[in-house]
Amino acid sequence: MTTLQQNFATTHPVALVTGSGAPRVGRAIAEHLASLGCHIALHANTSVDEADEAARSIADKFEVETLVTLGSLEDTQTASRLVDETVGKFGRIDVLVNSAAIWHPTPFADIEAAEVQRYFTVNTLSSFLAARAAGVMMAKQDRGGCVVNIGDWATVRPYLDHAAYFPSKGAIEVMTRSLAVELSQLHDQIRVNCIQPGPVLLADDVGEARAKQIAASTLVNRVGTAGHIAHAVQFLCENDFINGVCLPVDGGRSIYAPDGMQVGANTG
Results as ranks from 00 to 15, higher is better:
His162Pro: 00
Val200Gln: 06
Ala203Ser: 14
Ala164Arg: 05
Cys146Asn: 11
Ser127Val: 09
Phe108Cys: 10
Leu201Met: 15
Cys146Asp: 03
Ala133Gly: 00
Phe128Arg: 07
Asp152Glu: 12
Arg177Glu: 13
Thr155Ser: 03
Glu112Pro: 02
Gly198Ile: 06
Asn193Arg: 02
Ala211Leu: 01
Arg210Tyr: 00
Lys140Tyr: 03
Ala134Phe: 05
Arg157Ala: 08
Ile190Lys: 10
Val181Phe: 11
Val181Tyr: 10
Ala203Met: 11
Thr124Glu: 05
Arg191Lys: 14
Leu202Gln: 04
Asp161His: 13
Ala180Glu: 07
Ala171Thr: 05
Lys140Ser: 14
Lys140Val: 01
Arg143Val: 01
Leu160Asn: 04
Ala133Arg: 08
Arg118Pro: 00
Met137Ala: 15
Gly207Asp: 15
Ala154Asp: 11
Cys146Lys: 02
Pro107Asp: 12
Leu202Glu: 09
Thr176Gln: 00
Asp152Thr: 07
Gln141Trp: 02
Arg118Tyr: 02
Gly151Asp: 04
Asp205Met: 04
Arg210Gln: 13
Pro199Val: 06
Gly135His: 07
Leu179Gly: 07
Leu96Ile: 12
Leu201Ser: 11
Ser184Cys: 04
Arg177Phe: 03
Leu125Met: 15
Ala154Gln: 12
Ala163Asn: 09
Leu201Ile: 11
Glu173Asp: 14
Ala134Tyr: 06
Tyr119Pro: 00
Gly145Tyr: 01
